[in-house]
Write a protein that binds this DNA or RNA. Structure first.
Lengths: 194, 194
DNA sequence: CGGGCAATCTAGTCAGTGTCAAGTTGTGGA
DNA sequence: TCCACAACTTGACACTGACTAGATTGCCCG
């Protein structure tokens, strides 16, 4: 029998899509308070479900974070796939970080994830390939002789900018300008001579 | 002054330098298992001290992390102060991240720190100034008209490279090469035309 | 020299957490 | 129809951070 609860009629024994609900709640929490504030019991409470229910869908806390990261890499791969050129890919990378800070944070915080998870690694390599594709699309005389090095450079630049942005380290320099525009100007400055 | 501390039979009531011992143990734990694995009780156990002793030196868990971050910014500022030019500053930034991954991780993981802490903010602004100094040391015709933008670009590049390195996202592209050399080559590629 | 005092550490408690094991309820497939 | 399995609940355990009160110690000042 269900204990008291708020709102609608009696909740069915089966939630319907508990997995989705937990994920959504988790993203909310992470966005506001960061991954370390995540509590399976709290998520269960938000979904109106018993304290051990989440463990049935994501074995652990780590399992939950891993699932989030995998989904994040899929979203990122999707965004990068539509990029017109390398600079656009960079802009989309930054935009992804700003629009989905929770995903981004989980994806790139080491020690939070089960690195050998299959779903995670495949999503991750897919996103990596999309990035490499954007780099190799640049004509060789524009990007220098070493495509691999150019890829690292582009990724570092976009990733560093996005990370510093999220950790509020660019609040001063960027101010109230549109971060995407700043990033565009930044790449324009670095590559102006080509 | 201090009673003997290591190896002897009965532990003295006063540890001697518990604060230092806790910090050192914390850095070990973070290096191996990340900040989320940090437990005050575990640190107390490692230092051979009661479970509540750490709280006397660092009010909370957050206080401990904040102290670590502040010390990290001081170390970073010290490293940047000795830089010869902008590229060298970047190399030192990357080297700092590799030599002190625990500090680096804590410093740039939002939500872990007490951002309004005085010691933290002063150390942070000091490091920021050292970075700006390295940028403005570059002659204007080499860095373009906008020093602020050039600073963001340089910081993003170094920070992104360091972050991706620590999260093992460059294990493939960089391979077994010396990361500092790769970074040097990378900046050489980006700035070859000046 | 000796008493007091503040820094340091101990010990106990409380609410909250992840995880495990075993039970209960609903549902789809043979 | 019925039954095996998936989804969820319930209860328990060991752990955590935070808080409190009290014990111990070394040092300063008279």
């Amino acid at each position: 029998m269900n204990p008291a609860k708020t709102g609608d009629s009696a909740r069915p024994y089966h939630h319907g899509d508990l997995r989705r609900a937990i994920l959504a709640a988790a993203l909310d929490v992470i966005t506001v308070d960061g991954p370390s504030a995540l509590s399976l019991r709290d998520l269960a409470r938000r979904a109106g479900v018993s304290h051990a229910a989440p463990a049935h869908h994501f074995k652990d806390r780590t399992g939950l974070l891993t699932a989030i990261a995998a989904e994040g890499y899929e979203l990122l791969a999707g965004a990068l796939a539509e990029a017109e050129d390398l600079r656009d890919a960079g802009v989309r990378y930054v935009r992804f970080a700003r629009e989905h800070p929770a995903y981004f944070q989980v994806m790139f915080t080491p020690g939070l994830l089960r690195d050998n998870d299959l779903e995670l690694t495949t999503a991750r390599t897919l996103a990596g390939e999309r990035l490499r594709a954007a780099v190799t699309a640049v004509p060789a005389e524009g990007r220098g002789p070493d495509a691999r090095l150019a890829g690292v450079a582009a990724w570092s630049l976009a990733h560093g900018f996005a990370t510093l942005l999220l950790s509020h380290n660019l609040d001063g320099p960027v101010g109230d300008q549109d971060p995407e525009e700043v990033f565009r100007a930044l790449t324009g400055m670095l590559f102006r001579s080509r």
